[in-house]
């Protein structure tokens, strides 16, 4: 994947990706970005610092909550989904399924009746 295009594409879906990554349990920012890279096998990559403004924005929107927790060398901010976050994730998954099906249909040349 072209690096710039890939980064921009990832940023476009960053909120949904962060919600999905945190669905597996509370995580701090470094863990979130590491898991994003692992789960996508390196395909989804972006400057690591950009994840924090996104996490803060989702927290202000009430989709995440966070708390300080002791880390290996210093305390770290750990994020987790709120009830509203779970609802938003469910909606994002549904929306993505519809969108990817539609795009897949167009790209594969299947015409709807």
């Amino acid at each position: 994947m072209d690096t710039v295009a890939g980064t921009e594409r990832t940023k476009g879906h960053l909120d949904a990706l962060l919600l999905a990554l945190l669905a597996s349990g509370p995580q701090h920012g470094y863990g979130v970005i590491a898991e994003l890279r692992d789960r996508s096998e390196g395909e989804l990559d972006l400057p690591e610092g950009t994840v924090y403004p996104a996490l803060h924005r989702l927290e202000r929107a009430g989709l995440l909550e966070s708390t300080w927790a002791p880390g290996t060398t210093r305390r770290r901010r750990v994020y987790s989904l709120t009830a509203a976050g779970w609802t938003a994730l469910s909606a994002e998954r549904h929306e993505w399924a519809r969108f990817s099906t539609a795009v897949g249909s167009v790209l594969s040349g299947v015409a709807s009746a």
Binding site: G29, G49, G71, R74, R75, R77
Partner: peptide
């Protein structure tokens, strides 16, 4: 303070 603390924690962990 929060952004600075998170950035430092992240960078140190990444470097380690």
């Amino acid at each position: 303070r929060r952004v600075l603390a998170e950035a430092e924690e992240h960078l140190r962990e990444s470097a380690a």
